[in-house]
Design a protein around this nucleic acid. Structure first.
Length: 603
RNA sequence: GGGGUGUUAGUUAAGUCGGUUAUAACGCCGGCCUGUCACGCCGGAGGCCACGGGUUCGAGUCCCGUACACCCCGCCA
């Protein structure tokens, strides 16, 4: 028998074979996806990354090969030589290669497999914990194989697009100087510099701006970033972004470049034609209507801000609302149509949900035929005028339910935003993801430059300190920083922020005024960003850019439910790797070399 | 840091009101079978009921704590 691999080279992939190949002698390598032993004939589904082919070992063809085939078990890694034969009438319509099969004449078992902790099948309900512990097995499953293949293609299309558009793919350091503010950094102790630490870059932000100042004009990079923050469904501690920076551009130019990429990705990867330009929504309007800056626009269910109405009616006979407004808080409502058919028990459950998000409760009102309210804490005391006004503002019809939140604006927004999504899911308003799904792209634009730090009362940069304010707002920098809006933008898709960027502040004079408004002294600014401030003074071009979250993009394009399904080797919510056991201990010698001592004590 | 859900053979689940030997399916092992493709049939092995306390004559089941996983809030310029 000839030797596989050295003498018998692979001729085809398991998913390739079709009727046209009938009569050919082929050599396939792969894994035993399934076996059906009928005594005189053994059927094997052989799998590689391209698909599955049925292989038949018949006793009366090669007895010694058939005997070996009887020993095959799930996930044995094998090589097979044989002839492609038509299945005639006996096709398997569920298999791409279902019209043919391979009648084997040779078989080599490269490696046996112990019984697996879980089976390799498309529909798997094994706990994610188990899957992550044996991730190399999990990755054998077709859905994950498809996802990573798609991810590779997205990488490829992205590189082609930017390269063709005159962008240079340039690298930036991962080990950088720690700069305070923003995301928490991972720290790396420096052996050669006792007591000093590098930070792992949370983004290439400053370096890509320096590329512009260095004259490279158009940059992109598919780059890993690191943030030591708590994890979520859509957040991993290391993640990949498509990072872009351009010189001599306006916001529209950046949008144009990015929409071009997105349209091409959707067309080449999903075969979907998107329409341009994408919708734009001012930040303030997004907050008012949807409670956050990343609304899912596949359904409507907008919020209604009632703060003004309550003021206008002097509280309208409802002490709770009046009090909230007096304390500078906000009042919001949302109409839940009668068609939602929410039971009182369900609404009570919603109340538990919102309490978990920092709300004190969920006030509600059931609207009657004449517009009167029942099942509501407000019903007894509210003035008919305010009630009518609220009904009208919400567009409430008899049978509808109105849900209220009032108090601190940030909590009201968060709670109502989550309620909106929760109810939409409950009501079945959200269409499926995937190629046939709806793609609601949105640019959220024109946010305020500053937000007030709730703890200190100080004005702080809402994003980063190098975002360019709108020219017409510059006078407010000194008088009323809350009124300064800026050239910052987020790209949103179906409720996920998939990108964010800004036109940068390239004017050192304005930069100094922004720092001042933030309460950062010139000395402090120097200490933190000296190198960038110097660079801005030496002929920095006007520039701007954006970063797209590659992982989220892949997640949405593949219809995956979690970022962990599109990252090959993800971390758990506590940032651990269940397969390798990272993070692990460091021994005394390592720590000594690094001049590091742990203060951690067990228990 | 806070709120919530979960943890029972290798895997996924069932387990009544607290009561005798903890069930099933798939997988695994042995046997039979030449047209299956979720193959079928016969037989078998496999359990510290996450861990630590408690209540009880008696705990998989009730109570408290811990660990781990997941979802959310805070956090993520």
């Amino acid at each position: 028998m000839p030797r596989f691999i050295t003498e018998l080279k692979r001729t085809h992939r398991c998913g390739d074979l079709a009727k046209a190949d009938v009569g050919k002698e082929v050599v396939l390598f792969g894994w035993v996806n399934n076996r059906r032993d009928h005594g005189g004939a053994v059927f094997i589904d052989l799998r590689d990354r391209e698909g599955v082919t049925q292989v038949v070992f018949e006793e009366d063809v090669r007895p010694e090969v058939h005997e070996l085939a009887e020993k095959l078990r799930l996930e044995y890694c094998v090589g097979v030589r044989g002839k492609v034969v038509s299945r005639g009438q006996n096709v398997n319509p569920r298999l791409k290669t279902g019209e043919i099969e391979v009648h084997a004449t040779d078989l080599e078992i490269f490696n046996r497999s112990e019984p697996l902790p879980f089976q390799i099948e498309d529909q798997l309900d094994t706990a994610e914990e188990k899957r992550l512990q044996y991730r190399y097995l999990d990755l054998r499953r077709a859905p994950l194989q498809r996802t990573l293949v798609t991810r590779a293609r997205i990488n490829h299309v992205t590189r082609s697009y930017f390269t063709e558009a005159g962008f240079l793919e340039l690298e930036t350091p991962f080990m950088v100087k720690y700069t305070p503010g923003g995301a928490r950094n991972f720290l790396v102790p420096s052996r050669l510099n006792p007591g000093k630490f590098y930070a792992l870059a949370e983004s290439p932000q400053l370096f890509k701006q320096l590329y512009m100042i260095a004259g490279f004009d158009r940059y992109f990079q598919i780059v890993r970033c690191f943030r030591d923050e708590d994890l979520r469904l859509d957040r991993q501690p290391e993640f990949t972004q498509i990072d872009v920076e351009m010189s001599f551009v306006s916001q529209d130019d950046v949008f144009d470049a990015i929409e071009g990429l997105v349209v091409r990705l959707w067309k080449e990867i999903l075969g979907v034609e998107l329409t341009r330009p994408f919708r734009r929504l001012p930040f303030d309007e997004s907050m008012d209507r949807y409670g956050n800056d990343k609304p899912d626009l596949r359904f409507d269910m907008p919020h209604v801000v009632l703060t003004g109405l309550v003021k206008q009616h002097q509280g309208g006979g409802v002490p709770l609302l009046a009090g909230a407004v007096e304390e500078g808080g906000m009042v919001k409502a949302m109409r839940v149509p009668v068609s939602a058919n929410l039971s009182r028990t369900e609404v009570d459950k919603l109340e538990e949900l919102v309490k978990g998000m920092g709300s004190r409760g969920l006030a509600r009102a059931k609207v009657g035929e004449g517009g009167e309210w029942t099942q509501s804490p407000f019903a007894k005391t509210i003035t008919p005028e305010l009630r009518r006004a609220v009904n009208e503002a919400c567009g409430a019809q008899p049978g509808d339910l109105i849900l209220f939140q009032f108090g601190k604006a940030s909590v009201v927004h968060t709670v109502m935003a989550n309620l909106r999504v929760h109810l939409a899911k409950r009501m079945g308003l959200i269409p499926e993801y995937g190629p046939g799904g709806q793609w609601r792209f949105l640019w959220v634009v024109d946010p305020p430059l500053f937000e007030r730090d709730e703890a200190t009362g100080q004005w702080a940069a809402a994003h980063h300190a190098f975002t360019r304010p709108r020219d017409q707002d510059l006078p407010y920098l000194e008088t009323d920083p809350g009124k300064v809006y800026c050239w910052r933008y987020d790209l949103v898709l179906n409720g996920f922020e998939i990108g964010g960027g800004s036109i940068r502040l390239h004017d050192p004079q304005v930069q100094a005024r922004v720092f001042k408004a933030m309460g950062i002294s010139a000395e402090e600014a120097r200490a933190k960003f000296g190198f960038l401030l110097d660079a801005l003074k030496m002929g920095a071009p006007p520039h701007g850019g954006i970063a797209l979250g590659m992982d989220r993009l892949v997640m949405l394009m593949t219809g995956a439910e979690s970022l962990r399904d599109v990252v090959a080797w993800p971390k758990t919510q506590k940032g651990t790797d269940l397969m390798t056991g990272a993070p692990g201990d460091a021994d005394e010698k390592q720590l000594r070399e690094l001049y590091v001592k742990s203060t951690w004590e067990p228990g």
